[in-house]
Design a protein around this nucleic acid. Structure first.
Length: 501
RNA sequence: UCCCCGAUAGCUCAAUUGGUAGAGCGAGCGGCUGUUAACCGCUAGGUUUUAGGUUCGAGUCCUAAUCGGGGAGCCA
């Protein structure tokens, strides 16, 4: 009699007979042996079928099992160092649940266009599996952080009658004949709840119709937005700092092996400790124009140029190896490495051509304009810990941000830039609590007052200093996992012009 | 919206100055008792994205469209 179990539990059943259900990751027949690597959602297990007594009935079936077929397999668990995970199953019986036909994703490399079209199947690949598990942990850690610290979850609407902020392009949908918009932020709504519950947060999808085709943008992404009453800008920044540290701690605790699998430099995450840097926008402007930024870019230019030269040498060597290696697999390996090196080189060359432009942008940075992507990257690269850039010129920020009483040119806002050039993860602010100032800000921005009457009520009835921020879940996942592109951080990425599957 | 790059077998890529379109993987068949993306042999698989143009001749050159990648702007 065998016990039904999962691969993650195998260590408890050494020497016993168990039944596993799963999918064929790969199948390599080897004469009188067949090695079926099974994945069951909890791990990977090598199942060995040996031709001989008792296996005649299914040996041929096992030998021809296509990749990703679903099977039920029963056998004896054995500890074996040669097997993935240290245990293998010596198969006593095997049943095909469904035989797959030509699974499109092979163990060889694929292009991103192809994989995105196969997103529904790509889920099964180990890298995607790991990333989405880390995402789930990050989401759980966020919820836990707020729930354990006295915050109340408030779900804000997805259909919104007006823009939450002036700037972004929104998705317009028809709502019983009226044009409304998909929410680009829950913030204004969560502020109302803040005046009832004191500490609140909303967590949901957010929609932006910007026609951005970059690795840092999605049209649909998830954002968590806490809001706290009786709070100053510093209180809000403290909250963002504390929450970020707790997320990292949790991911390091639960996913060390996964991060290693992804090739993440864990030491860099371990260095993320309080206190983070706090620099004002005006100081940032000086840094951008000063020698520090220039030297950083000059060094990057030199480093990248040197790396390109190294790659060129490597490519030449690999080309030679690919032609002359004795074994066919050695030739193939060299060819693949060569291709990877070429891709890396092309990427570097593009970055190199961008550097002079970034130097110019940085050197000519004028107080009053918003920080560009390259400016953020510079500030981010100059620090090992996240940087809070605070107090931007009010002209480039939303109307609801609190005007700094000591310097009326700026508002009490902040962006948190993650290190390693990752850039903005969090944007937040103290909210303008003064009715008259808020009204004048609405007018300055040329916004109609009428749709904001309910919001203005919050300032008419017991207005208090308060503030909050928004954290982008996908950007956080990308940062912690060390991913270059947001498209792998969300189950079904929505990008400009892309909706399938 | 703007700038740069790309599209060849199911997949990843080759194809010299314009001259008969190839390999590996995957698929199918066979062999091998320890494989892990990595053994050996055989088989099938193509309107070179689309529409024009130049040319004796176009995968290769030109124009446009479509789709994709990267970046700018804007942002989380």
């Amino acid at each position: 009699m065998s016990t039904i179990t999962t691969i993650s539990q195998l260590a408890d059943y050494v020497g016993q007979s168990v039944t596993l259900h799963g999918w064929v990751l790969r199948n390599t027949p080897k004469g009188k042996l067949v090695f079926v690597t099974l994945r069951d959602g909890t791990g990977y297990c090598q199942c060995v079928v040996e031709r001989g007594e008792g296996t005649e009935a299914f040996f041929d079936e096992a030998k021809h099992l296509p990749q990703e077929s679903s099977i039920e397999v029963t056998g004896t668990v054995a500890a074996d160092e040669r097997a993935i995970g240290g245990h293998e199953l010596r198969v006593g019986s095997l049943k095909t649940i469904q035989a797959a036909v030509e699974y499109p994703i092979t163990p060889k490399p694929h292009g991103i266009e192809f994989l995105m079209k196969q997103r529904h199947l790509w889920f099964r690949s180990q890298r995607q599996y790991v990333i989405l598990r880390i995402r789930a942990t990050i989401v759980d850690a966020i919820r836990r952080y707020f729930n354990d610290n006295g915050f109340i979850l408030i779900d804000t609407p997805i259909f919104a009658p007006a823009a939450g902020e002036g700037t972004s392009t929104l998705f317009e949908v028809e709502y019983f004949g009226e044009p409304v918009y998909l929410a680009q932020t829950g913030q204004l709504y969560v502020e109302t709840a803040c005046m009832a519950h004191r500490k609140v947060y909303c967590f949901g999808p957010t929609f932006r119709a910007e026609k951005s085709k970059t690795r840092r943008h999605l049209t649909e992404f998830w954002m968590v937005e806490p809001e706290i009453a009786f709070a100053s800008l510093d209180d809000v920044i403290d909250l963002a700092e504390d929450m970020t540290c707790s997320l990292i701690e949790r991911v390091l605790k639960d996913h060390r092996a996964d991060l290693e699998f992804l090739g993440r430099d864990i030491a860099k995450l371990e260095r993320i400790q309080k206190p983070f840097h706090r620099i004002s926008y005006s100081e940032v402007a000086d840094i951008l124009r000063g020698p520090q930024a220039r030297e950083l870019l000059e060094k990057e230019l030199a480093d990248k140029t040197a790396e390109v030269e190294e790659l060129n040498k490597k490519i030449e060597e690999l080309t030679e190896t690919a032609k002359t290696a004795r074994k066919k697999w050695q030739q193939e390996k060299a060819a693949q490495e060569e291709q990877a090196a070429r891709e890396r080189r092309n990427e570097l060359e593009e970055e190199i051509t961008n550097i002079p432009r970034h130097m110019e942008l940085s050197a000519n940075f004028e107080w009053g304009s918003d920080l560009g992507g390259s400016d953020e990257t510079i500030i981010s690269r100059l620090h090992e810990r996240p940087v809070f850039v605070h107090r931007y010129p009010k002209e480039v920020k939303a109307f609801y941000m609190r005007v700094d009483r000591r310097d009326g040119r700026v508002v009490e806002n902040f962006d948190m830039l993650a290190p390693e050039g990752v850039g903005e993860i969090i944007g937040g602010s103290a909210r303008e609590e003064d009715y008259d100032i808020l009204i004048s800000r609405i007018r300055e921005e040329g916004l109609p007052q009428e749709p904001y009457e309910w919001y203005l009520d919050l300032r008419r009835y017991g207005s208090v200093p308060h503030g909050g921020f928004g954290l982008g879940v996908e950007r956080t996942v990308a940062w912690l996992c060390g991913l270059k592109h947001l498209r792998e951080t969300i189950p079904f990425p929505r990008m400009m012009g892309k909706i399938y599957p």
